[in-house]
Design a binder for these strands. Structure first.
Lengths: 256, 256
DNA sequence: CCACACGTTCGACAATGCCAAACTCTTAGA
DNA sequence: TCTAAGAGTTTGGCATTGTCGAACGTGTGG
């Protein structure tokens, strides 16, 4: 996603969005806390918060402000309009049930791989991340699956914008290496995250398309000790592929 | 929730929120569509949309604008900070599994009953609503369960703001009747929605508290032909109550 | 009881959002 | 092919409206 700059931006909106962002990053904040992070006077921040609260985008409990649930309402609607979610949820549930692991539907947003849905199977690890969270795209199975189906220049744009930051010893940090990897992902139709984002965590991803547009990816994650050998390299990839086909058929014949 | 008006509102934020609202209600819209619903010139609306897009709150596909996934990111965080969600998700899953019906965690927001989480059991009906959706509070099991634990004047405030609109023949539309109903809900600890919002749909709700603060409610819904007789009036209520207790214990002893 | 820290309100100035109108781009029809 | 209509985009100047700082509340701890 090219970081398009609006020609005539509405500053108040930029600033309001920044404040919401901060409330998220700080896990809720008081007025003074925000003051430290924003170039605005106390009085002004107050007006912003009061207005956002009135709009339902912020809630306050005494002195601390939080993101309001209207954000969830909006986000929920946004998700419902994502085809990957509508078409893929059932398949994700099925796969989580069958494998016992953590299954997620991810789509590209802001050059990142973003959770649209997640379903934990019986044995799934505690989740480190969840609905709406935006993960780096170069070191996740879902992200690489997505990149593998994006036009080359889009990939370059994204890498330009996001860089290839190190997360673990296995993280791909070299652009050429990344493109090689994407090539082999295209060959197999499967992407592997072999402890590239978090030590001890492996993942498997498959891109999902409708006609020729990329919808996102379905991915499975689990601890190294369970995702290894044949299960990691063969069985689970096969199951993912099966689900992918199912979803893509559903996409093609909406009524069936 | 009293409709607090900000003293010095930032108009641009109010308008931006209105536009997001419209994008939701219209299921995506073009610039001209918005023009009909907002007292702003084309050019101005354009600036708003461009800015919101830049902030990730709006996405565009050619000519049509949609809510952007950053809303989901924010909303997801907001949800994670709701204790009812964190504490209750497991219980809701369990209940959905066991009963096969639709189970939801709801909390009060804007004087409405709002979905924090939903889990569909095997036999659950197709959902008419979902994450983040805000339902009327006087004609849903969850809503009435919530009202039953709110201070009397809060209930009056909410009813003043929301009214008691008719949804079906069974909808409670009289304030006195509502208060009687709430009284009996308090007695039983259970609320019933007997086709009060949608014909053919029944629901059962239980309020959930932590210490003395109300967190929200857990509710179960299904078609009349499955929710009837003893199952509706006894068995399912008992199961809900069991889960409620489990959640409240978890709330009390965080580490257990 | 005072002092401090934080939130809230207010009035005046100037930044900035708004409108209208001109411009571009695409599509459809003659 | 040319024209017109319909949509989106950009611009400049005026007036609205956000912004600051200071003064005013409010509550908490010493």
């Amino acid at each position: 996603m090219a970081p398009k700059e609006a020609k005539n931006p509405v500053r108040s909106i930029e600033r309001a969005a920044r404040i919401l962002e901060l409330l998220k990053e700080l896990d809720g904040a008081r007025l003074v806390d925000l003051e430290e992070h924003v170039e605005l006077s106390k009085g002004t921040i107050h007006s912003y918060l009061a207005t956002l609260e009135q709009c339902g985008l912020v809630s306050r409990d005494g002195m601390t402000y939080e993101i309001g649930l209207d954000a969830l309402t909006l986000g929920g609607y946004a998700r419902d309009r994502e085809q990957l979610y509508v078409l893929g949820r059932e398949g994700a549930d099925e796969l989580a049930e069958k494998t016992g692991e953590l299954v997620a539907l991810m789509t590209e947003w802001n050059g990142r791989s973003t959770y649209l849905y997640q379903r934990a199977g019986e044995r799934a690890m505690a989740m480190d991340s969840h609905l709406g969270v935006q993960l780096p795209i170069h070191c996740t199975a879902s992200g690489k699956a997505i990149l593998s189906e994006l036009p080359e220049d889009r990939v370059h744009d994204i890498v330009d914008a996001q860089g290839l930051p190190v997360w673990t010893d296995n993280t791909i940090t070299d652009r050429a290496a990344l493109f090689e990897e994407l090539e082999s992902i295209r060959d197999r139709g499967i992407s592997f995250d072999d402890e590239e984002r978090i030590d001890g965590l492996r993942g498997i991803g498959v891109p999902i398309k409708r006609d020729d547009t990329l919808l996102g990816a379905i991915a499975l994650a689990g601890p190294v000790n369970r995702l290894e050998g044949d299960r990691y390299w063969q069985e689970l990839p096969d199951q993912l592929t099966k689900i992918k086909r199912m979803i893509e058929v559903k996409a093609k014949y909406p009524q069936s």
